[in-house]
Write a protein that binds this DNA or RNA. Sequence first.
RNA 1: GGGCUCGUAGUGAAGUUGGCCUAUCACGCCUCCCUGUCACGGAGGAGAUCGCCGGUUCGAAUCCGGUCGGGCCCGCCA
Length: 591
Amino acid sequence: MNRTLAQEVASRIGESVTVSGWVNSRRDHGGLIFIDLRDHTGVLQLVVNPETADAFSLAGQLRDEFVIRVTGTVKERDEHLKNPNIATGSVELVVEALQLLNRSEPLPVAVQDEGQQSNEELRLKYRYLDLRRPKMQDMLKKRSDYYKYLRDWMSGRGFTEVSTPVLANSSPEGARDFLVPSRVHPGKFYALPQAPQQFKQLLMVAGVPKYYQIATCFRDEDPRADRLYGDFYQLDLEMAFVEDGNEVRLEMEPLIKELVTNFAHKELMNLEQDGTVRRISYRQAMDEYGSDKPDLRFDMRLVDLSDDLRGTEFGVFKNTIDGGGVVKAIRVEGGAQLSRSQIDAFTEIAKSEGAGGLAYIMYENGEAKSPIAKFLSESELAAIKQKTGANDGDAVFFGSDTRDKVNKVLGRLRFEFADHFNLKDPSKVALAWIVDFPFYEFDEKTQKLDFGHNPFSMPKGGLDAIRSEDKTAILADQYDMVMNGYEICSGAVRNYAPDVMYEAFATVGYDKERVDERFGGMITAFKYGAPPHAGCAFGIDRIFMVLTDQENIRDVIAFPKNGSGVDAMMDSPSIVDDAQLRELPIRVVTE
RNA sequence: GGGCUCGUAGUGAAGUUGGCCUAUCACGCCUCCCUGUCACGGAGGAGAUCGCCGGUUCGAAUCCGGUCGGGCCCGCCA
């Protein structure tokens, strides 16, 4: 039997075809029945006449989502019967034989894009039904094309795809691991890799010049709208004989730019004159945008006014500055139109980030209106207006606290104001590399030095730098790519020198034994002629989410877990048999 | 672990300053009518202990306490 797809039918007028699919809807006129048949290519109207008695009586019993196979003749519709709203609207299939392949109970979720959409809890529980929706079918297809694009591109650039183990070793320094007990070695555990970090570096030692893999990564950390619980995918890559992060960045930039323009058909903005992706230091990103993953589709930079307000009469600012803090401001174009209650809402957001309040100035009719204006001198007001670039109709909001706190508060407000004023143009993509991350960071809570981002990256300046006095001033040749406010890539030039590695870990309190215990395999390998190398990993689910205008990463995944790490459809995680546990051997202790 | 928020027929919503709620509407479901609809139309019908437990009250979907579940955010994510 020849099988035809719904969308092919239009080109086969006069022919007899057989089509299978689901009943999308049925319109029973008593003496004539229309059925919209749906398959993965679209919808096709079937017409069933009383003349075909068997088919007609069966058609009357069909319900939504019944699975059928029909044979009939493709007929061009009379002009006045054509439906321009559907792709196959100029034809219909006059049914000669109808076969019921399977029935369906009324569905617990909506499977049509039009009209009501079920809540996500139900959509996830009945994901196999939710995936019937044309939007989801589209997503699955696009995602497949996307993966092919990635693989073709990497392969075309001379990268070798290597699969690394899924049963690996625990690395407690990073995210929480998923542990897998070993039956053969009672009491010992594998861990699902958070990333194939060590394996890919070992491939460099092995002499693979350019490695890549679409790698499954596992992390047992609480999810977010842009971060899945459990497992997710990275385009993981590494290049040998690279000592400068620029080499990796320039190698990979074109892929991301192509994805934006050729694959997603969006407009790139914010590029350098020479067409490369802009590079911003971590320090600059934090100071100017209040974030290490700024959305650069809009400007709205943070402006430091501490010097201009050093002698101010306004107590809050004065105390902050005298105490070593900073006063910064952000200009919101058109912000003067904000209502009292809207400002209150933004103030609440500021407070939730740790601000005491939210001072502001509204510029209206040539005047600076503000509850704090009376405390500020003419010259101070002039400096604020000039430095922020505020015009009539704008508003300026202030943050006053330690530098990090102010950056955090104003960075959040920048994000929220952009939402409020619709500054996030979905047709545009702004990319940037955030570079020069601090190698170490001082943790206020534990009062200890810790790695800033990635302990495997090479400190700029090597051994000498690590031994220097001010550890927090050491930079790493480490780079993140940001896309419209999302971190989509993280990478580094790696530390391939055992002595630098030991020293780097010693600074945060790891002795040689502990380093050997944790990363012994890699350190040993580095003793046998490890080439310098660098690489990175792209969060490809997240990129796909941005490229397809989704705000939740679960919407680009076939079978995602919910925010509690539960797969509502499969009901995992679940209890296992005692027999299984005994074999491992593991005992579950509950309170 | 913390903050905010949501939970009402199979589905999506309304009602939430206590009484007019014996809970409203749309889709879906069931019965019947209908030969050109395409979100077909028409007539009728069934379907909800208002997430769960407790409290306040003459009276609770509505107020209070607790609890369970979802979502977003903070922490966390080398």
